[in-house]
Design a protein around this nucleic acid. Structure first.
Length: 300
DNA sequence: TGTCCCTTTGCA
DNA sequence: TGCAAAGGGACA
């Protein structure tokens, strides 16, 4: 795949003044990216079975427990990742499993959100799914899979801690970073991708100098991030669907992640733990968009 | 009803 | 073949 998602040349539409909202712009950019990703066969398929391919369309809606999703909304375009169905054959009685391939942009936003919040309330999941043009169920499943992935990582980490305290210092960050660094690969400006590879990521790479070189500074982030006061004022615990178990788990998970080296692994000014809100979701999208367009936040 | 956990399945 | 989305059972 040689398409450069993030380069401004690839996203001319994102600068269009028709719709300046971050969501629209980012989804529009995503649409272009998806269309570029589509093979000719897929394009043909999407023509004949429009609006497929889309992870949110009929195939998903037909799933047995899709009725549990608070809402199923029709897809409007191909801006989501593609989903495929294996052509008929085995498993006549069983429904074919559809495996959605989330787009890079969707993964960026999902992972960014996950880093800040391991558990989402029903409403938050709904809003996120709407923003990403995914189904509620897909977002829920993604978060669950991600939690399991993290748990496995923690298990391996603990195991390697006890078995090899020497190599742990090196192996843990590399593995852990995969959760985060990989999530941004598709959103980065062209030419910088190598910076985000697991091999090259290091404290050395992301010192303050590197950040200033990448048009990001702490001031920009403080302008776009919620401070602790905002965080304390924003009570997502008040949501009706937020039960005590979820709340507890959320705290445990977030604490676990804070305690397992996140502050060491992540650039100091990158993703702040204290910002969890729907407003921030749009801000995140805004930031990703600006970043992908190589625009400094303070210029916006 | 959501989460955990394991498994199945599709794709690069 | 590994990864990741999704299925499904057990549990609270």
């Amino acid at each position: 795949m040689s398409v450069d998602l993030a380069s401004p040349q690839s996203l001319p539409e994102a600068c269009d003044s028709r719709d300046t909202s971050p969501i629209s712009a980012i989804l529009e950019a995503e649409e272009n990216y998806t269309s570029l990703q589509m093979s000719s066969a897929e394009a043909l398929y999407s023509e004949t079975a429009s609006p497929l391919p889309s992870s949110t369309d009929g195939l998903i809606q037909d799933s047995p427990d899709s009725s549990t999703s608070p809402q199923i909304k029709p897809s409007t375009s191909a801006l989501v990742g593609k989903s495929t169905v294996k052509k008929e054959g085995k498993g006549q009685g069983k429904k074919q499993k559809v495996r959605t391939v989330f787009s890079q942009m969707q993964l960026c936003i999902l992972k960014d959100r996950f880093q800040k919040q391991k558990y989402l309330s029903l409403q938050q999941m709904q809003e996120l799914s709407e923003a990403l043009n995914l189904t509620y169920k897909q977002v829920k499943t993604w978060f669950q899979n991600q939690r399991m992935k993290c748990k496995r990582w923690q298990k391996n980490t603990n195991w390697s801690k006890t078995s090899n305290s020497v190599t742990q210092k090196v192996s843990v960050p590399i593995e852990f970073l995969d959760l985060y660094s990989s999530s941004h690969q598709g959103c980065l400006p062209s030419g910088n991708l190598s910076m985000w590879s697991n091999q090259t990521w290091s404290n050395q790479t992301w010192n303050s100098q590197s950040w200033s070189n990448h048009s990001w500074n702490s001031q920009a982030w403080s302008n776009h991030s919620w401070n602790s006061q905002a965080w304390s004022n924003h009570s997502w615990n008040s949501q009706s669907s937020w039960n005590s178990q979820s709340s507890w788990n959320n705290q445990v998970w977030n604490n676990q992640f804070q305690n397992c080296g996140e502050e060491f692994l992540l650039p100091q000014v990158q993703f702040q733990q204290n910002s969890v809100s729907d407003l921030e979701t749009s801000q995140t999208i805004d930031l990703f968009l600006n970043y992908s367009m190589n625009i400094q936040p303070e210029d916006v």
